[in-house]
Nucleic acid binder design. Structure first.
Length: 889
DNA sequence: CGATCCCGCCAAGTG
DNA sequence: CACTTGGCGGGATCG
């Protein structure tokens, strides 16, 4: 249905994908849609069929979003190019962008390692931080202003001046140009293999993403982006040609990002006219690096020992090249040697057929470590649950109380989702979280809930290995680190922007409206997008939904928040999946130190925050989830999610965790997960999988069902109503789907509970995806869903493109675990699904809320509502930009 | 016609 | 030197 609605383009794409892609085994499910399309056309490969976006989709379809780290996720460029029938050059375009997001890392010459979205959250968090440091937000503003002001006059020069000024600012700050931002764990490749060259595409891509993360209305016009990017590179020449080229590249990047569902094309209408722009549709709740850092860093740094570094710090390492200051991460000459040696090491490692890392990782991963980790998580969860129950569901808000925790805000947004997730997972019992929690508690080990975690994160750990003793020398200049940390800390604490935003989010519903009015950007109401956005607005009563469409350029954080929520919602699906996966992984395989709480950060955290015990736990959990599994959607979870909720009273955390180590060489090598090793040993027999696996099935069932990814395009579906009215939670569909796995489940149970993903989860995932694996036919067929949602239900939502991609999900565990059954998990990407987050529903959380919200039609209504809001202030928009989705055409 | 952006030349890097 | 990367911009397509 949806497809039909979709533009022909989309249809074609779908067809293409289905036909072309081998992996798309599942395509069958989607086939329904195909009908509309004619395959005959294929002959003439229209330009679109060769588009980078499509190619990227194909590429992505080949790999799971959350690969099992234990497996070898090697990507051979030649193979890929061959299989996809494209020139190598094109693959590079894709890989470079993916690499910038740390979705892949280069191993050696023709080889890359696939990480999928495992590190995505972390990467985004880091990029955000870096973006803040570079004051991209301001730069963007300035450019916009300038443009508006001087449009008429001499543009170029003005712009140049502006840029130069901006740069000056940056310079003052001490950092300027930044190089490729690395993540802990993935650092090596950049330096060694690619020597210094990392240039444009990769860096440009990161910067581009940063712009989104930094801007309030998460909309970035190509023009602005190009200007900023150019500005940084070369001050002066704003050549036309250069600009043009930059734009070309941005399109390339945008196509890839779009395929990742992180971005979506829209149009921003200003006075002058419509400008192409892109709107962020990715996660909003990525972990805030700064915070983490702050907590841990100081101490560690001081100590001089490799202190655990926040991912942020680590990431930052390469950021500021050098233009001048060597401070911070810049490489000092003295360090160069070290760096070299490190690189050499890396090379060796890379070159080696089997990188030690992997092996190590693999070894550990499957074994006990995970278990222990899981146990820890469980404990944490329990604690949280307890607290929650105590405090009762009233509200998560308490979290916010703490200013320091930035995450909260995010969490808050997300929370709804999380909760819903949990509830769903929990199962039918959704009735009360408390109950669940209690149960869990009583069981001591865990309730089924936990199962959801996926293994992926482990990847990170392995990397840690890289630090060789040799490489891991004492930091040459601790001072530099210290400085760095300080900086971050300041930012974290002081950055008004962040704070404000957070606050705004929580506190001020009122503000939203204002912001809206003020917003320069407006979505076209006509556009469905807008509507979708609006709808998504948080269910919370407290906050009214503001019209999302209007974006403000800067000033109003609240707005952003609102949007964020909405957007988040959209992303929700992805996130959701990711979480699920992540959880599964945790439970199953990955022992993350943090989970164990070994991680110093965690430890610290609780102490510092003690006050809020529960909250702390939540945070820790969140962090744990986030950090470990990059995709942290968890944020919200703070207490909400049952999973987390289940707190374990006293979990002792082994002290062993090791913090990440920094390498002086100019590269910080974060050893974020080193603890793993140590932790491994600690296997906590306690919870082993049994718990996990079995009981809960029922619980699992539901989860997502309710959530149906709706394509942004199709917003019209009225989810809103759904969410409130319909208890989606247990939509029939979900149930139906459930059975599929149930079969499998036994095996899981018997096998290592740990590793095996719970069937429920799987179902859940599938459902989310809207696809059921081929092998397993999903009961989930659209028809099944009786709920009003049905339209959506079709849920095969495809992203904008309307394409459905089936991906193999981390097969590892599954395969391994259940030999008898060759199961392949397939995940579909649902880029843009929008769901309504409902933190408010907390009461019901258990039930489910994932309602996808979308409804273009509703928009208008929503908008009006927003406007009405009492609080609203009327702003006179200085500028108005309308953002419209192009899709609608 | 402007927005997109594919194609592939060819230089820089690497082994 | 051959091969891998990937900057870059002409110019074809799309809308």
């Amino acid at each position: 249905m949806l497809i039909s609605a979709a533009s022909p383009e989309i249809r074609n794409r779908e067809k293409k994908l289905n036909t072309d892609e081998n992996e798309a085994t599942e395509a069958t499910d989607c086939s329904q849609e195909h009908l509309s399309g004619d395959e005959s056309d294929r002959l003439q490969p229209s330009r679109k069929e060769k588009s980078l976006g499509l190619l990227c989709h194909k590429f992505l379809a080949r790999y799971p979003d959350y690969p099992n780290p234990a497996l070898n996720n090697n990507v051979c460029l030649d193979e890929v190019a061959g299989e996809l029938n494209v020139e190598r050059r094109r693959i590079y375009d894709i890989v470079n962008v993916l690499e910038s997001l740390h979705m892949v890392s280069r191993l050696a010459k023709n080889r890359y390692t696939w990480h999928g979205r495992s590190n995505l959250m972390q990467t985004l968090g880091t990029l955000k931080t870096v973006g803040d440091e570079h004051k991209y937000a301001e730069q963007m503003q300035q450019i916009k202003q300038r443009d508006s002001e001087k449009e008429f006059d001499s543009d170029n020069e003005e712009e140049n001046e502006h840029l130069s000024k901006l740069r000056g600012i940056e310079t003052e700050l001490g950092h300027r140009e930044m190089c490729f931002v690395e993540l802990p764990g993935m650092e090596f490749r950049a330096a060694s293999v690619n020597s210094r060259k990392d240039k444009s595409l990769r860096v440009m891509s990161q910067k581009f993403v940063m712009l989104f993360l930094v801007s309030k209305p998460r909309v970035v016009s190509l023009e602005v982006a190009a200007k900023i990017l150019i500005g940084e590179d070369q001050v002066v020449d704003l050549d036309k040609s250069k600009f043009k080229t930059k734009i070309r590249r941005l399109y390339d990047i945008a196509n890839v990002l779009s395929s990742l569902a992180l971005i979506r094309k829209v149009h921003v209408t200003e006075e002058r006219g419509r400008k192409p722009a892109f709107k962020w549709t990715g996660p909003e709740d990525f972990p805030d690096v700064k915070r983490t850092k702050r907590l841990t860093t100081p101490t560690s740094v001081t100590s001089g020992i490799l202190a655990p570094r926040s991912s942020v710090d680590n990431c930052a390492k390469n950021l500021f090249p050098s233009s001048r200051t060597k401070q911070n991460f810049t490489r000092h000459p003295s360090l160069v040697k070290l760096a070299k040696s490190i690189e050499d090491d890396r090379r060796k490692i890379n070159s080696a057929p089997s990188s030690p890392v992997k092996k190590i990782f693999g070894d550990f991963s499957d074994s006990d470590l995970h278990t222990s980790r899981m146990a820890q998580l469980a404990a944490i969860c329990k604690v949280q649950l307890d607290e929650q129950s105590k405090q009762s569901k009233r509200k998560p808000k308490p979290h916010y109380a703490k200013p320091s925790q930035k995450t909260k805000g995010k969490a808050a947004k997300t929370t709804g989702h999380v909760e819903s997730t949990l509830s769903s997972e929990l199962g039918a019992n959704s009735s009360s979280q408390t109950d669940l929690s209690v149960q869990a508690y009583s069981q001591a080990q865990y309730s089924p809930i936990i199962p959801v975690i996926l293994p992926q994160n482990q990847t990170v750990a392995p990397y840690a290995i890289y630090l060789h003793s040799s490489s891991a020398r004492p930091m040459a200049n601790p001072s530099s680190f210290a400085v760095r940390s300080m900086t971050f800390g300041d930012n974290a604490a002081g950055s008004p922007a962040d704070t404000n935003s957070e606050y705004s989010l929580h506190s001020a519903p009122t503000g939203n409206k204002d912001s809206i009015s003020s917003e320069k950007y407006e979505y076209d109401l006509s556009q469905k997008n807008v509507s979708s956005t609006n709808q998504r607005t948080t269910p919370d009563k407290g906050h009214k939904r503001v019209c999302t469409e209007t974006f403000q350029e800067n000033s109003f954080p609240k707005i952003s928040k609102t949007q964020t929520n909405l957007e988040d919602t959209a992303e929700f699906n992805e996130t959701y999946q990711a979480r699920v996966k992540a959880r599964r992984g945790l439970i199953a395989s990955r022992p993350s130190p943090r989970a164990l709480h070994l991680d110093p950060e965690f430890i610290n955290t609780p102490e510092g925050k003690e006050n809020k015990g529960s909250d702390n736990l939540g945070e820790s959990v969140e962090k744990f989830l986030e950090n470990e599994e990059k995709p942290s959607y968890s944020d919200s979870e703070a207490g909400l999610t049952p999973v987390r909720t289940v707190p374990m009273p006293a979990f002792t955390i082994p002290a062993r965790l090791q913090p990440e180590a920094l390498i002086p060489a100019g590269y910080l090598i974060p050893i974020s997960h080193p603890s793993l090793f140590s932790c491994q040993r600690s296997k906590s027999p306690e919870r082993k999988g049994e718990t996990t696996s079995t009981p809960s099935h029922p619980a699992y069932q539901s989860p997502i069902t309710g959530v149906i990814p709706v394509t942004s395009d199709f917003h019209h579906v009225t989810l809103t109503s759904t969410r409130s009215k319909i208890p989606v939670s247990q939509s029939a569909a979900s149930i139906a789907s459930f059975p599929l796995f149930s079969q499998a489940s036994p095996s899981f149970a018997s096998g290592r509970q740990v590793n095996g993903p719970s069937p429920g989860i799987l179902n859940f995932t599938l459902q989310n995806l809207g696809l059921i694996s081929p092998g397993i036919h999903s009961s989930v067929s659209p028809g099944t869903l009786t709920t009003p949602i049905s339209p959506i239900t079709g849920h095969l939502r495809f992203q904008q493109g309307g394409m459905i991609f089936v991906k193999p999900m981390s097969p590892l565990h599954v395969h391994n675990q259940i030999p008898g059954q060759p199961m392949t998990l397939i995940s579909l990407q649902q880029p843009t699904v929008q769901t309504t987050p409902k933190g408010s529903q907390s009461a019901h959380n258990e039930s489910f809320f994932h309602t996808p919200v979308s409804a273009s039609s509703q928009l208008p209504a929503v908008v009006s509502t927003a406007s009405r809001t009492p609080q609203e202030n009327v702003y006179i928009p200085q500028r108005k930009l309308e953002v419209s989705t192009e899709d609608n055409s």
